[in-house]
Design a protein around this nucleic acid. Sequence first.
DNA 1: GAGGGATAGGTGGGATTACCAACTAAAACT
DNA 2: AGTTTTAGTTGGTAATCCCACCTATCCCTC
Lengths: 146, 146
Amino acid sequence: MTSDAVVDALVRSTFQVMGVLTRIGAANDLSLTQLRVLGILRDRRARVTDLALFLGVDKSSMSGLIDRAERRGLLARDKNPDDRRALDVFLTPAGLELTERLYAEAREALEPATRQLDSEQQQNLVTLLEPILIGSAGPGPLKPSR
Amino acid sequence: MTSDAVVDALVRSTFQVMGVLTRIGAANDLSLTQLRVLGILRDRRARVTDLALFLGVDKSSMSGLIDRAERRGLLARDKNPDDRRALDVFLTPAGLELTERLYAEAREALEPATRQLDSEQQQNLVTLLEPILIGSAGPGPLKPSR
DNA sequence: GAGGGATAGGTGGGATTACCAACTAAAACT
DNA sequence: AGTTTTAGTTGGTAATCCCACCTATCCCTC
């Protein structure tokens, strides 16, 4: 099985990046999970259940998670126009700003790693990761909420 | 900045794999962090502080984490021969067995994703991820403990 | 168009995980 | 020897997570 090596590398890099993100989050009073929420919402709104599914977390865990972030003014809830049971969650301007700052920090923190690749290799890596992101590993990618 | 795209893809794939691992862990009564500990210890022993550094977690968080896993018979502590303050942590046979089983589950769960790449692309991906793992992103890779 | 089941989100309770500050023991430095 | 640093643990509090339930809404079928 060649795919053993891929999964191994994928898991390793996941652990590595996770460590970096955990530290960046901690420096900004955010848990890794909160960081993930911000990351997911960076370019879309999502319903609570979709977030929970993607995070691999219980719906009820999302409630408090969103509550706390909402109390900090980072994100907000909005009635979903198509389904009155559902709520869309999205970043506030402050949340978006923080998220962009965190991404900048991540770029900086990962720079020693990415610097090891020349520009063509970087492009290749992005291309190769693309199908992984799409290929439904788990709940599938988040669809635009509606 | 080309590296933006790399970091973006890296973070995205990290989130994706994290979700998969979270679910696998939950199915086996393991938190994501515990999973990471097992993953790190799969092929080496490590000192408590090194684990904490790599995980991006406080030393004190490690103690309880190790306690609980030790109570479950998954890992054990051992005096470090070179530094009498330090403790090496390592997997028990049961822990190793569980870890291998979890990796198998991860391979299975990620198979729909990795299947998107042919064998040559997989090899390329592994090669491109290699420097990321080595390029000191954060505390650097764990050195063999001594 | 009225039930019946499924789904979206939230509450409340209990265990785990997290941080910080303080502590002991051992190393390292001067 | 004495001071400072480092490794790991403990104790206290807040965040996170799961589970079992709950209400409101949707969807489906009759």
